[in-house]
Design a protein around this nucleic acid. Sequence first.
RNA 1: CGGGGCAUAGCUCAGGGGCAAGAGCGCUGGCCUUGGGAGCCAGAGGUCGCCGGUUCAAAUCCGGCUGCCCCGACCA
Length: 588
Amino acid sequence: MWFNNLCFMKVSELFAFSFKEEPKDAESKSNRIMLKGGYIKKVAAGLYSLTPLAYKLLSNISGIIREEMQKIGCQEILLPMMTPAELWKETGRWDIYGKELIRFKDRNEREFCLAPTHEEIVVDLVRYFIKSWRDLPFSLFQIGQKFRDEPRPRFGIIRCKEFVMKDAYSFDRSEEDAEKTYWKFYEAYRRIFERLRLDVIPVQASVGAIGGKFSHEFIFITEYGEDKIMFCSKCSFVSKKEISDFFIDVENCKLSLEEAKTKVDLPRKIPTPETTTVEKLAEYLKIPTSKIIKSLFVKTRSGKYILCLVRGDRFISEDKLSRVLEEDFEIVDEKEVRSIFGAGKGFIGPLKYKGRLIVDRTVLTVGDGVVGADEDDFHFINVVPMRDFHFESVEDISFAEQGDVCPSCREGKLYERTGLELGHVFYLGYKYSKPMDLKFIDKDKNSRYVVMGCYGIGVSRTMAAIFENYGDKSEIKFPFEIAPFKIHIIPVNIKDKDISDVSFDIYHKFENIALIDDRDEVSPGEKFADCDLWGAPIKVVVGKLLKEQGKVEIINRFSGQRYYESVQEVFDRIHFLVEQLLPAFKSS
RNA sequence: CGGGGCAUAGCUCAGGGGCAAGAGCGCUGGCCUUGGGAGCCAGAGGUCGCCGGUUCAAAUCCGGCUGCCCCGACCA
């Protein structure tokens, strides 16, 4: 009635197993509990089989996502996983995608890949059918497997090669409409994670060279994440580290530099043998790395060379730099650097450089710096930016670091957390509709490109996040709505007729949401351990107390609250708990 | 793709040129037990990752390969 995935089951019939010993090679909490509780079995690195327990949980998560998608009018479809190379060649992604895209040929020597995402495939579907403005707008979603040949799968289900994803695609007549659709999905995502009882933070994400106007990632904070997120200690500022702004008083720095211009001696070349890195140089000169100006030589995709300067203790963010350059770039290798500068990477500098210079804001804080001399084993000291090398403007191309001043309130300090990306919404615009020629005829008989958006949720990864959030040592308590089983009944001794009868009465009363441990010859300890591992929020124990006092113990595992009720009152108490634990979500 | 580690029973691991291959947990049968993976008895279970080399003799030493784990690089 409440749940489309009925979960009535006896433990003796359930395909479920658990281990007494701790699994090795399980570094994350989610991975450990899932292995110990028999939720998953590793097949190969980054590939897992799910048992009924895990699949029920996954289905319940998918169910919530499905409901919320349907609420905003998104319709469910199913696209193939094996997809022909031609479609990927239309958008150029066949070449752009690296080794993550797994490619192979069929028996007729035609090229295929396993889809890591489905933009091309869904556009191919949509362009076949739609013709007129009357066919728009709409959005489609699917829940299914994706394949990405990850170089290094990690943390069990958190980062796999094959994983379950919900991906949705929206199609609108105009940019304005598409933007509205974007926010509709954004709000739907907030509701989904709220219902899943996960604290997930929407963070403005990098759109970089990929294009599109905006994008948000939905980040779950956990040490097993792979994204770095910057937070402000005072205000609500939050940003991905690679694109995070931070405050530097540029004007004030410039004033200090004016002063330095007259106070600091002119640059002097000094020998600095074997100081190939900033750290070695700082140690050799006995100065902090913040007094060094690092030079990084890059080459854009279109072949332009650029020298980038950043303070020695800072690092260049590829995202920020490619945004300034407005194209992708790569770091020039040692050999090429030498042929241009006549020195190795560690010894190049801006003083004699004639090409394009991009100077990071942090460089302005160096009033008396050290730069490479374009000669192996030599650096210049007493270098003052704007006096000894010139540039028209400064850019923001370096990473924000912990302790930096918040760019928003300018009061708080930034701090860093690792997070896990559970969802991502993109405004795509024309990125796929143009190259794939997805058009419609508008009211004025003009042919126009469809405006798209795409929206993903890592469903299997979200499942792992649930374990990270609600798991403990050898224990997990699932939020009621997604729990594989809502009520776990433990007849301590099933061979005792009274205990057995009462237990089964309860079980039959709640048989669409209850699991009963009807195993005989299994010690109570094992039953309790399995109950802890399998995560039902309500635990019902029928044993000694029934014989002695005619009472049954009911435990709300979430609150830890225990209730001792007579056989007549048990049903009411459980009903009460179910009502209490059921989320107060009325469709909005 | 670099650096490191590991590979012996279903799981966790011990053994370290020579007798029949070892433990705990798990599994099977029996007894006993029933509020936190209890106890006793009896069993089953092995290509010691693969290929090659050294040797009278290799799970053990050497070389190669493969797989897995960790660190890094990478991650629309």
